[in-house]
Simulated assay, not measured.
Amino acid sequence: MRMQAAVQLVYPPQCLTCDALVTTDFGLCAACWRETPFVSGLVCDCCGVPLPGEETGGPVQCDDCLAVARPWSRGRAALLYWDNARKMVMALKHGDRVDLARPAAGWLHRAARPLLAPDTLIAPVPLHWTRLIRRRYNQSALLAAALGRLADLPHCPDLLIRRRNTRSQEGRDRSARFVNVHEAFRVNRKRDWMMQGRPVLLVDDVMTSGATLAACAEACLAEGAARVDVIVLCRVAKDA
């Protein structure tokens, strides 16, 4: 404790996204907190996007989830993909800011609480091995591992394999996104025993159309998962 206090005197904690001083490690200053769109209140039970109105006690769904059948059961998001949230995702994904996974896992844990059962297996959306070599880490796997530690639940980083290097989803419309990832994922034969008859919680950094998560969920269900839920750090909303 004394050593930690001495370190903080020499290197006082700074905001995650700016140089402002904060009171605790891995925190946001007041200005950055105001610019970080945390999800709260009534949300779609399937994808986690915020909805207008008051909570009624029962599950509700957004227009997208009513129009497009989701293979997973329930979903949540910690943040909306704009302002400071987008900045942090880009820093984690492309800027080597792996330190962001720790506070992000806390936000994920809070959002995912309705989805966590005692026997839940946590698994990330995988990168193709060629992309993993270039990036050196899978940001979704970092988030999933940190969430597993917080929730005290098992985490399997290689439950799923991306069997082809799909092109970027950016700039594609909804239909093209689903075509791009169709049958792009399979369950790792060395790990399939871990999810037999138990719920799986898939973790990803951003959900836009839900195509990637749908392909992953279908692969899990086809190989024996009892149920699949999804949790993402950021949800792209139409008015974002």
Rank of each mutant, 00 (worst) to 15 (best):
A101H: 00
A104G: 10
H109P: 04
R110S: 13
A111E: 04
P114S: 05
L115P: 09
D119M: 07
T120K: 08
L121T: 11
L121H: 05
I122E: 09
A123T: 12
V125D: 04
L127F: 07
L127V: 07
W129K: 10
I133L: 15
R134F: 07
S140K: 11
S140E: 09
A145G: 14
D152W: 08
L153Y: 11
L153F: 13
P154V: 08
C156H: 12
C156A: 15
L159E: 01
I161F: 05
R164S: 01
R164I: 00
R164Q: 04
N165F: 03
N165C: 13
R167W: 10
Q169Y: 06
Q169G: 06
E170I: 15
R172F: 11
D173G: 09
R174I: 11
R177A: 02
V181N: 00
E183N: 14
A184C: 02
A184S: 09
F185R: 05
V187W: 06
V187R: 01
R189V: 15
V200E: 02
V200T: 04
V200H: 04
L201F: 07
L202V: 10
V203R: 03
D204N: 07
V206D: 03
S209A: 12
A211K: 03
C216M: 02
A217M: 04
A217Q: 05
A226R: 14
R227I: 02
V228G: 07
V228R: 02
I231A: 14
R235I: 09
V236H: 12
